[in-house]
């Protein structure tokens, strides 16, 4: 990939993002979805709708991607 392509691509993505100035973008799509309704991720057997518990689980998994937490200095 050459530098120009990278720039073009970045610009395209940036343009899309520039629609909103702050970091929390609206996640609403302009188009309407015609397919089947999907259940919430935390709706199944495992979390039984407990969103907080589910988010905690994801946060724990995310933290395991940080090896800095696995040394004594971090404990």
């Amino acid at each position: 990939m050459n530098a120009r392509k990278l720039t073009t691509m970045a610009a395209a993505v940036a343009a899309a993002a520039a629609l909103a100035g702050c970091t929390e973008l609206s996640q609403e799509s302009a188009r309407s979805y015609m397919g089947k309704e999907d259940a919430k991720a935390y709706a199944g057997d495992q979390f039984k709708g407990d969103k907080q518990k589910w988010e905690q689980s994801l946060a724990t998994r995310a933290a395991s991607q940080n090896e800095y937490l696995r040394t004594q200095a971090a404990k």
Binding site: E67, R70, T71, Q72, A73, K75
Partner: peptide, 9 residues
């Protein structure tokens, strides 16, 4: 076990 020293302390 620690990931740097491998030790259980």
């Amino acid at each position: 076990f620690d990931a740097k020293t491998l030790r259980c302390t």
